[in-house]
């Protein structure tokens, strides 16, 4: 498990993911309000905040589901604004979903194989003609998919590969979503409530896994999470949002005890302070 970094500001000068003055409103309701956010290479940043704080909107903006009204979003110095989602994915930003969105019509391994589509050249003729090169590529894709699944140990191993995705347990579906995101070969993983709906032992496992993703997988991670145990366990840095405004940023301890954060959570302040 990764220990929280004491001094998040002391990292490289150029962040991997950078949001600058991002605004987004829906029909007059401001959802993201002049947000600045930077995630550095190999860092794990958690975004917390009460429901309606704009956390998922933040992910949707980064992944290009809709563009910001104004402001800049850059990945490795290059703007993502205006790119279609699949191009952003190919630039290296992959995500999971709070409400699971697996391809339930496919098998476990097919889910992971499908998301490698972006890395390969696909044409109908090429796909149908089965040239030796194509067959090799197909084998590589499967091998890569197996490699990603192997990351989750025996949870998604062997016989599970060829089972339909809908046969998986809830926790395994969350794992598979992460594996699927990994298969797009991202620079940064955006995890939307990876521990939601999990029991304590599964939650513990996912906390370890996220640390392993950074340490062994080398991914930079931006995570939305409600479970403060998880947040505490994984975060190098925590950003708190409320009504689209960044109200606090810093170490877990600093943010969790910040009066504005406590106020934002109100009734649930107990959870924040444990």
């Amino acid at each position: 498990m990764a220990e929280p970094q004491p001094s998040p500001e002391s990292t490289q000068t150029k962040p991997l993911l950078e949001l600058e003055g991002v605004w987004k409103s829906f029909g007059g309701l401001v959802v993201i309000d002049n947000l600045d956010l930077a995630v550095n290479e190999n860092e794990i940043v958690s975004v917390i905040g009460p429901n309606g704080a704009g956390k998922t909107t933040l992910f949707n903006l980064i992944t290009g589901i809709y563009p910001p009204d104004s402001g800049a979003i850059r990945l490795d110095g290059e703007s993502l604004v205006g790119l279609p989602p699949h191009k952003i994915a190919r630039r290296g930003a992959a995500r999971t979903f709070q409400t699971l969105r697996l391809f339930l019509n496919m098998t476990v391994i097919e889910n992971v194989m499908a998301s490698q589509y972006g890395q390969t050249k696909v044409g109908i003729a090429r796909a149908m003609l089965r040239t030796p090169g194509m067959r090799r590529e197909e084998r590589e894709i499967r091998a890569r998919a197996e490699e990603k699944l192997a990351f989750f140990g025996e949870r998604l191993m062997g016989y599970r590969w060829d089972q339909p995705a809908y046969s998986l347990s809830y926790a395994n579906r969350r794992r598979l979503e992460i594996a699927r995101a990994m298969a797009t070969e991202p620079r940064i993983l955006l995890l939307d409530e990876p521990a939601a709906g999990m029991n304590p032992s599964e939650t513990h496992e996912i906390t370890e896994l996220i640390g392993k993703l950074r340490d062994d997988g080398g991914y930079t991670i931006l995570v939305i999470e409600h479970d403060m145990h998880v947040v505490e366990g994984i975060s190098d840095r925590v950003v708190a949002l409320d009504h689209g405004v960044k109200i606090a940023e810093g170490t877990f301890e600093a943010v969790a005890t910040n009066p504005r954060v406590v106020e934002a959570y109100l009734g649930t302040s107990a959870a924040v302070t444990k």
Partner: peptide, 17 residues
């Protein structure tokens, strides 16, 4: 099949839908 099931999710997985 991915696109048929969930076009938006597919596009976020790098699929040019």
């Amino acid at each position: 099949r991915a696109t048929a099931f969930d076009q938006e999710a597919a596009s976020m997985m790098g699929i040019d839908t």
